[in-house]
Design a protein around this nucleic acid. Structure first.
Length: 188
DNA sequence: TGCCTGATGTTCT
DNA sequence: GAACATCAGGCAC
């Protein structure tokens, strides 16, 4: 798994589409499929790691295959998967997922249903109960694991500019599965 | 359907 | 003290 993720974020991001995140909680198993990602790295003004290593971004500079969870706008968590070799400060933000298993439990956590369950970075964290407790978590071990799948064929992937940021907006580092109803709102 | 805004806390300057 | 990789609810059209 680490080998697979040991590449620049903009290359790892499309490869993660279609892969599975498995979350075990309270005797339930939640399984979701990644359908939308964004790449960030140290050379990127929109990235948390842009200004260098700080206590918060320490995880991003670590080895690949770990979870970087941050808190934003006072009420939301977002989760990233650290990529590239140690010291690079790159990560892939998970923007949207498609529920495969445990959807009922996710509905209970979110008090929402349908695609509203997980079509945004903060929403999916709530649906999977991912909080800062899991910051720095090793994704090769429970209770949150990343299960890699064969990458999607290139013709199923759409690449656009990113969403919800105020710097480096021109970077085309957002990737999603073409036509999937669970992707977050389009910025086209 | 689409814009505007409030909620809210962590991090960094 | 300001910025912030957001969401949901309200109101106007």
């Amino acid at each position: 798994m680490q080998d697979y993720l040991n590449r620049p974020a903009e290359l790892a991001a499309p490869l993660l589409l279609g892969s599975i995140i498995e979350r075990k909680i309270d005797g339930h198993t939640l399984r979701v499929r990644i359908v939308e990602t964004e790449a960030y790295d140290q050379s990127d003004a929109a990235s948390h790691s842009y200004k260098g290593r700080t206590p918060r971004t320490e995880i991003m500079f670590g080895p690949p295959g770990f979870l970087y969870v941050y808190f934003t706008y006072g009420m939301h968590y977002c989760c990233n998967i650290v990529t590239d070799q140690e010291g690079r400060g790159s990560a892939v933000l998970i923007r949207a997922v498609e529920p495969l298993e445990g959807e009922d439990y996710m509905k209970a956590l979110r008090d929402k249903s349908g695609k509203d369950l997980s079509n945004g970075p903060a929403k999916l964290c709530q649906a999977l109960s991912i909080t800062k407790e899991l910051n720095g978590h090793d994704l090769s071990q429970g209770p949150v694991t990343l299960v890699l799948q064969e990458p999607l064929p290139a013709d199923r992937i759409t690449q656009t500019t990113r969403i919800g940021i105020s710097h480096a907006q021109e970077m085309p580092w957002r990737f999603y599965e073409t036509g999937n109803p669970y992707i977050s709102k389009s910025n086209s």
